[in-house]
Amino acid sequence: MEKKEAQLQKRLRDGDRKALEQVYIQYKDAFVAYLSDRVIVRDQLEDLYQDTVVSLFQNFVLKQLELESSSIKTYLFAIGKNKAAAHFRGPQLVSREEIEPKEAIYQIEKENLSEEQLALKKAFERLSDSCRQLLRLHYYRGLTDKEIKKMTDYKDINTIKSSRSRCLKKLKSLIHE
């Protein structure tokens, strides 16, 4: 794998938001050219591209993805093609063979959330920065308390546990406010 590609993949895994922007800028023209005959309205294409880049980024972060047989570009295009197909209810454009099973795209949209989850989301947005950060590490990054301790200033694992339960309590109380 090219050094530059490997470095960019690493930054995506690390959740480097600058890498998100770099991917967005780097492949935009090629992506637009590729899908412009399938997606006619330009505004929709921009929107589709943004969703595609976000999905790529989140898959890297969530799964700590290391692409070996494909590149960021092929992966990005595969996501884009699937999104276009889903959005316009056309035929599935990517055959399953194009993506390795472990590289399968994880996807969840706002429309998939239950009423209760939507209420949780609203409440989460009102939490303090420190609570959001802590809950993100646990529920979004899937990190164990041991791993969280290594990358934060929390004194010990018990403090992390008690802070988390305090944040969850706060979150639940915000739902009812």
């Binding site: 938001r17 922007e21 967005y24 969840i108 949209e109 998939n112 959330l113 989460f124 809950l135 979004y140």
Partner: peptide, 28 residues
């Protein structure tokens, strides 16, 4: 419980990331 909140955070983070790209796109 884990899955329910995790899905919420994934959607929420996705929205923030998209906001960042929308800003980037309009600035560009």
């Amino acid at each position: 419980e884990y899955k329910s909140l995790a899905e919420v955070l994934i959607v929420q983070e996705g929205e923030e990331l998209k906001k960042q790209l929308t800003t980037l796109s309009s600035v560009a």
